[in-house]
Simulated assay, not measured.
Amino acid sequence: MSGRLAGKVAVVTGAAKGLGAAAARMFAAEGARVILTDVDAGGENIARTIGTAARFVHHDVRRESEWSALIAGVEAREGRLDILVNNAGVVELDTPEGITEDSYRMVMSVSVDGMVWGCKHAIPAMRRSGGGSVINLSSIAAVQGEPNNASYTAAKGAIDAYSRMVAVYCGQTGLAIRCNAVLPNGMHTPMVASVPEKKRAAAPGAGLLDAVPGGGNARGEPEDVGALLLFLASDESRWINGQSLVIDNGASITKGAVPSPA
């Protein structure tokens, strides 16, 4: 173990599966104490497999009161907070004409509200720790057109923009806190795997198109994103701030399908 995160304390939301679970494992392997949060109790099993460097907290990111309690508990138990990964999110398939209030509110509350409250309560804790790194999971949907992802695109675009705002705010108020957005395409995660079934289950009048979401059919692994999150969480990236880092094997700049790396 090289200990790239030795002595650091990290909170990873949406950590019961997919990108969040991969990041939590990789952070702990590099010396961090990791608090995994999710509404899915499966996060308890992930924390158990990681070992004593990890623990799970049931946490609804949509509720500011739960964020306040979470961060207070982390500081009380661990003494500091150095890293926040705002990963929790959900996807619904909808179009600009077919978008519904219920699905829109759900996607926005988990992805955007969760990130906003996370930043609000993490920044003071990181100030007390002397600095930190906030990493917000956006998507290439924020920078390219995806006709079946109206709510999701709105949420991920907001995350991308808000990350820059947080970076500038922290910089101009003299805080040693960085904030970056990570924009993956479709990875091999349970959320992405649910998309075809969501499309089959959509009402005939939903107006969904046959376009492939996520910029082609190539799929990366959660650990591919986890490696970038690990870099951004570490001091190796101390000069990277307020950036939108696309991780998609070139899918967002390539016409047609992108082959998987050899």
Rank of each mutant, 00 (worst) to 15 (best):
V134K: 01
S138G: 13
S139Q: 05
S139D: 04
I140P: 05
A141C: 07
A141Q: 03
V143N: 07
V143P: 07
N148G: 07
N148W: 02
N149C: 14
A150I: 09
A150P: 09
T153E: 00
T153V: 03
A155D: 02
K156F: 00
K156M: 00
I159D: 01
I159Y: 01
I159Q: 03
A161M: 13
Y162A: 12
Y162I: 09
S163K: 03
S163L: 01
S163P: 10
R164T: 11
M165L: 13
V166H: 08
V166N: 09
V166Y: 02
V166T: 14
A167T: 14
Y169R: 15
Y169L: 12
C170F: 05
G171D: 05
Q172S: 13
T173W: 03
G174Q: 06
G174S: 06
G174D: 03
G174N: 06
L175R: 12
A176C: 12
R178P: 04
N180P: 11
V182Y: 00
L183E: 02
P184V: 03
N185D: 13
T189P: 00
P190W: 07
P190F: 04
M191R: 13
M191H: 11
V192Q: 12
V192F: 12
V192P: 11
V195C: 08
E197P: 14
K199M: 11
K199F: 04
R200F: 02
A201M: 14
A202D: 06
A203N: 10
P204R: 10
G205R: 08
A206D: 05
A206E: 02
G207A: 07
L208F: 04
L208D: 05
L209Q: 15
L209S: 15
D210V: 08
D210L: 04
A211E: 13
A211D: 14
A211Q: 14
V212K: 10
P213C: 01
P213K: 01
P213D: 01
G214T: 08
G214H: 06
G215C: 09
N217L: 10
A218Q: 11
R219V: 11
G220R: 06
P222N: 02
P222S: 01
E223G: 07
E223Q: 12
